[in-house]
Write a protein that binds this DNA or RNA. Structure first.
Lengths: 334, 334
DNA sequence: TTGTATGCGTTATCAG
DNA sequence: CTGATAACGCATACAA
């Protein structure tokens, strides 16, 4: 099942066999025929480990993202990202290794990626866990080319692909302002990633531009992203007299919506709502939930493309960014 | 950055260094100290490709599933499966390679898995595409140990982990029967996988046991799984005078629900509905959608466990099955 | 157009 | 307790 076996069968040398298979130097068509026939006969498949050992390239890329937690409403955003990554890698016949980490990180466990330690891959696609500095250290230590996804890290320049969260958030808040809302609440996660940070910035920019005061009681930054937390936030902001709420996370959106409905608030008459991320079911609740739609598939696809470019041209400079526009999807809740 | 480098640094042989690192034979504590120190100093990481070449084990497993299609409501079921797989593999420090295929298969493209051709992995976890026989051929040809997930294939005995779809389906239909429904429709996909087949069987068994006639106009088997198809099915079964509908797919469930609501049918008064798979949003529509809940995370976890067992004991016989119970989640629609 | 020989990093065998 | 060395499968520099 090796190149040597084929060499024996055909009476050629391993060099000729190798070249015949890879088309890497001229081989008489006669020899080529023989080699291909023999290869087919024994079902030859190149051993990628040997190739890797020899060339230092595995044609494999790792994707590192926050994971799904059992029993929790999963964050399917990264599934769509993965689909995009996979699609792009496929075009160049790269394999995809997946590693996920728990978020928030368990205290007890240091941030370690088996994949990195094993030196499998040619490059890395990473949704960085910004609350854990060692994440970045690990990545840098691996000395592999990498592209960040969904979250950038300002401290150093590198390739990344993110959504224009600031703008998406701004537009959502502006829309509610234009509909006459003046006590607009913000529900989000703690500002540990550029994504959540930028969404908060967009909210604040809109308030500032319109001359609205910042009311701390209308800003709710949750430590964990769960439906329960979302419901709690819904209760708090209702109490604080909000007449609109922008929720910058999809799971919290469910919670806030559920609370408001359960408490008998009319949406959008009593309080208007815009959420984050776009799912089909948002059309099926009453009212439909307007939301800021990201394009996760594109995000993954573009990130993979960027990484492949870099793998093809190692000398290329870092720091190329790609910021994807969001789309405000209007249903009935705003 | 290799074992040899460490050997030079410490003045020991590569053999000793290797054993010191892996604890595979006795090494004086003094030597061990030196080796570990040197390793840390240069940031040594074992080269897995070399290991693989030597041992024929990569500690890597591939998961092959239907993929997410861009712009389509994704099937997130397999995301949860993947989470379970990942969790179990992690426990044994295995890496996970992901490959997806399009379903339904493009005609033009033969069923090929780069992963298999490259001989990356020690074993395979596969959601088989039953409509494409070459899928199985490919798997067999790879001669790797494998475990099927979500769908079994009766033709040959092998390890698999599936849901008890027949029973889940049966219970759903029975519930609607007990609520007095007599014209119960079935909406599903074409019977190309054991999963969809078994769901249909459960439906038929219930009808048969209760002495209900089988009405062909109440059975809708869709070629593609989309919301539009689901809506079309909804229209057809309403026309056919169904007073209940069991939908055996999560995406079709959205479509059927959307149609019925749009057409002004009261659920469950005019027509009752039970869907498949369980998502949070099913609680937020009105009425909440009752559904047959599978346990995808468990499914992945168990499948990975089975595979690891087999990798640890190659002589072990095939044919161990694991069938997971479903749970009927009652909301308001039944 | 073809062949020979070397080395990639690791482990295991054998011999000290 | 330690060391020398072969072998895993492949690609390539060099030689013919």
């Amino acid at each position: 099942m090796s190149i040597r076996k084929i060499a024996e069968m055909t009476g050629l040398s391993t060099a000729t066999v190798s070249h015949a298979i890879n088309g890497t130097r001229a081989v008489s068509s006669e020899s080529k025929q023989k080699v291909l026939a023999a290869a087919a006969a024994i079902g030859y498949r190149p051993n990628i480990a040997a190739k890797f050992l020899r060339n230092n390239r595995s044609k494999t890329v790792a994707l590192i993202t926050p994971g799904v937690r059992p029993g929790m409403p999963s964050n399917y955003f990264y599934m769509d990202v993965m689909a995009g990554v996979h699609a792009r890698l496929n075009e160049d016949e790269y394999s995809l290794i997946i590693t996920t980490y728990e978020e928030p990180m368990e205290e007890s466990r240091s941030f370690s990626f088996g994949v990195l330690e094993k030196q499998w891959c040619d490059g890395l696609l990473v949704v960085p866990n910004a609350s854990e500095p060692s994440c970045i250290e690990q990545i840098l230590k691996s000395e592999l080319p990498y592209v960040l996804i969904d979250r950038k890290i300002d401290r150093f320049p590198c390739d990344y692909v993110i959504s224009d969260n600031e703008k998406g958030s701004y537009e959502a808040v502006r829309l509610m302002y234009e509909r006459g809302r003046r006590r607009i609440a913000f529900v989000g996660s703690q500002l540990r990633t550029s994504a959540s940070h930028d969404r908060y910035l967009g909210y604040r920019r809109c308030l500032a531009e319109r001359g609205l005061p910042e009311d701390r009681s209308l800003v709710l930054l949750n430590g964990s992203l769960s439906i329960e937390e979302g419901m709690r936030s819904g209760a708090l902001l209702a109490q604080a007299g909000a007449d609109a709420v922008f929720v910058s996370d999809n799971i919290l959106t469910i919670g806030v919506f559920r609370y408001l409905k359960g408490a008998g608030r009319r949406i959008p008459e009593d309080i208007s709502l815009i959420g984050y991320d776009d799912y089909e079911w948002m059309s099926d609740v009453r009212p439909g939930i307007s939301s800021v739609k990201q394009r996760p598939y594109e995000m993954g696809y573009r990130a993979a493309a960027l990484l492949l470019e870099r793998l093809g041209d190692p000398g290329r400079a870092e720091g190329r960014a790609c910021t994807l526009d969001t789309v405000l999807v209007l249903r009935g809740s705003h």
